[in-house]
Write a protein that binds this DNA or RNA. Sequence first.
DNA 1: TATCTAATTAGACGCGTGTCGAATAAGATA
DNA 2: TATCTTATTCGACACGCGTCTAATTAGATA
Lengths: 201, 201
Amino acid sequence: MTSTQTEELLKFFKALAHESRLRLLGLVAQREHSVQELAAAVGVTEPTASHHLAMLRDLHLVSRRTEGNTHWYAYVPDALARLAKQVLSREGVAKLAATPARNSPEAIVANYLGDDGKLTHIPAQRKKRYAVLSWLVRKFEEDRTYAEREVNELLQRYHWDSATLRREFIGYRMMERDKGIYRRLSDFDWRSADGSEPIAY
Amino acid sequence: MTSTQTEELLKFFKALAHESRLRLLGLVAQREHSVQELAAAVGVTEPTASHHLAMLRDLHLVSRRTEGNTHWYAYVPDALARLAKQVLSREGVAKLAATPARNSPEAIVANYLGDDGKLTHIPAQRKKRYAVLSWLVRKFEEDRTYAEREVNELLQRYHWDSATLRREFIGYRMMERDKGIYRRLSDFDWRSADGSEPIAY
DNA sequence: TATCTAATTAGACGCGTGTCGAATAAGATA
DNA sequence: TATCTTATTCGACACGCGTCTAATTAGATA
């Protein structure tokens, strides 16, 4: 078990360590809200609300569904539940002492990221490629499907060669394709698939 | 139920939203540690470690016991357990949406605090005086006794008239005195004592 | 197609806070 | 008493991050 776990937990605490985001979370925990509603309720501008919501969504604390121009945000309880469980036991807390893992997937990925946030290149070495791909596939949501066009668009934010990346996703069983429609598979389906250490999520 | 609850929760998340503090907490969750040990393990200087530990101690996440020159810090699980419980239920999260309470004890206290962090004066109005006192008494630890000299020293960080404050603590049953030795009483002993709204802790 | 609405992205600015070195406090030891 | 050890407080600095306005994207409607 790498200390990726600790880093993940840290991300959650950082995400929750802000009044605006806490209140956003509280609001969506009551019912779905649009960005406008949320911005007004919290007392910030829409860009700011959008910014915070993106952060919460990255951590799968909230989900988003689109209806016309409007984006409806909803609460996703799972992530917080996992956090609470870990923090409930002393052993869980004690694990936080772990020194930041050298060779953690994050560290590997960082080596391939340029200043613009894009990948400089796709690693050839199996383990590193795996790390990068598993990081990348998490940019996709689990609960929806993507047209090939959408997959390409999202991938090209990180690297020009979306075709190769798409193919690799399928190969590693991180995504499945059916009649040109893509869906991200759950971590549990593919992690450890190459025999390397599982990546904590 | 005031939104003080939300503010408390926010404090916890802020405290935990930092790698150094998370690791400090992890270390003390394993066993008692001195400041030196902790600083070395986390890779910061002693002043920095001390600073973080003070923060964790304010929130009762860790406790401190003195042995000669050495301060031993230990883990206190209760606070995190409470946090976990609230965050585990959707209702608990939904409460976070509450708009920041005007008239919260914190807001009252803020009115009497100067830029130097000291009280400009002691409120005369009963409810406000109560709010300030209950805030002030929390500067004392629950699990130890204080000599009158120590009580005065601590109080004078906030106001010159420590004698009046001491007397009020006794009157409100926030402290008890026995043969010149003072001890902070638990919140549960005195909150709501004056019939005002309970102060969430 | 042109326009309007909702949301996100980009870029800039200011404040909070984590860090350090230096100074101070408090206890132990010679 | 003088010195050494451990920890805390003080003051200053730097950087991260939350916020805003402006610009852009994407969909709906006329």
